[in-house]
Design a protein around this nucleic acid. Structure first.
Lengths: 118, 118
DNA sequence: CTTACATATGAGCAATTGTTCATATGAACT
DNA sequence: AGTTCATATGAACAATTGCTCATATGTAAG
């Protein structure tokens, strides 16, 4: 059995706790999805968009206008938000209206706000 | 008054909604803090660490061992987590024991998990 | 079928990020 | 003092990211 990490010699934990920690750490797959989801929230522009959409559905051009970003930048970001299933959309003529996909979005934003506001 | 964004001509919203959207978008300062907080969750290694610490406090070397990362990588990440007030620590001899700063951490992870698991 | 408008998208670039490696700090023990 | 162990930190590098710019797609109206 070879050491692959340059870490300390002793384990400062009870055998039982070690097992529970290992059991508690999600699978690589889940970690990947989870971090990917939070990455999406980790950008000012996207958070602005989400807050805007938490009021009402909006077309791309109005999102751009109210967030003070270019149409292109917003369009790129909406693609990201769509990929994470945080927003959905419907087409109406030339316009595309975006809205929040579900209530998780608001809840996650709310929890984040709680943390920074204390 | 000059146009600074290459967006559409019309506003597809009621005057009232425009006002509410503007009111609802957080200040630059708050957006900065919020996105910065979520950025911290946006990394597999840091999420692993947080899940590990959600079981029990642990010293750096044990975190490294159980997350299968190097001591240095973990130490750097703990610095980030500390800066966001997601973890706290106490020193005991040569070792430093880290633990979750509060329950928001678990709640935020929980909400994220809820979103990806549907 | 043109033209105009709304949105999407690809390439390119600067900025940010996570890891590794080497080294520094600091505590405990001889 | 010197040695060992646990942790922290700085520099460097590859990888990722968010924007801009130019252009493509698609819809509606003339």
């Amino acid at each position: 059995m070879e050491e692959q990490f340059d870490i300390c010699d002793y384990i400062n934990m009870k055998e039982e706790e070690v097992k529970e920690v290992i059991r508690n750490i999600p699978s690589e797959d889940k970690l990947y999805n989870l971090s990917d989801l939070f990455k999406v929230f980790g950008d000012k522009t996207r958070i602005k968009v989400l807050y805007a959409l938490s009021v009402t559905e909006m077309c791309v051009c109005d999102i751009a206008r109210l967030t003070e970003m270019t149409q292109s930048a917003i369009s790129h970001q909406l693609k990201t938000l769509k990929a994470s299933k945080l927003v959905k959309y419907r087409k109406e003529g030339k316009a595309t209206f975006y809205s929040l996909a579900d209530d998780h979005v608001k809840t996650i934003l709310e929890q984040g706000k709680n943390h920074i506001e204390e």
